[in-house]
Design a protein around this nucleic acid. Structure first.
Length: 254
DNA sequence: AAGGCAGCCAACCGCAGAGGG
DNA sequence: ACCCTCTGCGGTTGGCTGCCT
């Protein structure tokens, strides 16, 4: 897009922190006129900034409806789980957090959550090793008081889910694994320890999954961790960071 | 009290995609 | 088809602040 009213950039734009006067000028201008073409904004608002800087200041600080201050536990869980699903897609993650900006989410992740996730993963690995040692001479007991079975439409995959009695997931997930697994071909080598994420999608749900899961609701933040063998695997099921059950998956190769 | 250090956060930079000329 | 500009995004930087020695 080319804006005909835009002026050629000036050579000496002011940089650094914004003064309260600059903030007020920018805010007043945009609230009165809208931002329109960003490169036009500093000229018309009487600011020695470039349009990009104005845009950033507006989006990250001046825009109405921004939620400042510390992240709630729920917001942090959403960030952690969406990051597991999407990676560093900060703008997409921020879209799920009303009042938060991508910059804010990114900073919060880099400052706090990255370390926390790393620590919890290390703790989880350590716990997993302990559990494996115990399991060597034991039959695996189901976690849950409720369970369900299902089969994929291809008929190549059998999934058994058990859930802890204290937690009833309000989610339906369409893709249990990565697409390779959906097709009955695991990209994981025998013995691989893996962590996978699934995007929950009510549009694609299988109504068989509804049984026993109670009221459904569109939620993100599902993660599976476990060990995949050549024929089957056992996975712990996490929702928003909490262990909510486990499941095994068997490949009945046709 | 002062200097060093680490953490946090606002802002900048560079890149890619979209779209008009 | 190519160039140019705008916009949006993610990575990075630099300054401020608080804590520690």
């Amino acid at each position: 897009m080319v804006c005909g009213n835009c002026e050629k950039p000036k050579n000496h734009f002011k940089k650094g922190l914004w003064s309260p006067e600059e903030d007020q000028r920018l805010k007043d201008y945009i609230l009165r006129n809208g931002h329109g073409c960003w490169s036009e904004v500093p000229v018309k608002a009487g600011l020695q900034r470039n349009g990009k800087s104005c845009r950033l200041r507006w989006i990250n600080y001046l825009r109405p409806g921004l939620k400042r201050g510390i992240f709630s536990t729920e917001e942090e869980k959403i960030v952690i789980n969406l990051h597991a699903l999407l990676g560093n897609k900060w703008s997409q993650i921020a879209n799920h957090l009303p009042g938060r900006t991508d910059n804010e989410v990114k900073n919060h992740w880099n400052s706090y959550l990255k370390k926390r996730v790393k620590n919890s993963q290390e703790a989880s690995k350590s716990k997993e090793l302990d559990n494996r040692n115990i399991a060597c001479n034991q039959t695996i007991e189901p976690l849950a008081s409720s369970s369900m079975d299902s089969s994929s439409s291809e008929g190549t995959t059998t999934t058994t889910i058990t859930t802890q009695s204290s937690f009833i997931p309000k989610v339906i997930f369409a893709d249990w694994f990565s697409m390779e697994n959906v097709n009955g071909e695991s990209s994981l080598m025998n013995g691989d320890t893996s962590s996978m994420s699934c995007i929950l999608d009510l549009e694609q749900n299988d109504t068989n999954f509804l049984d026993g899961f109670g009221e459904s609701e569109c939620v993100y933040g599902f993660e599976a961790q476990g060990q995949m063998g050549s024929q089957d695997g056992f996975f712990d099921l996490f929702y928003l960071g909490d262990l909510c059950g486990n499941f095994d998956i068997s490949h009945n190769d046709a």
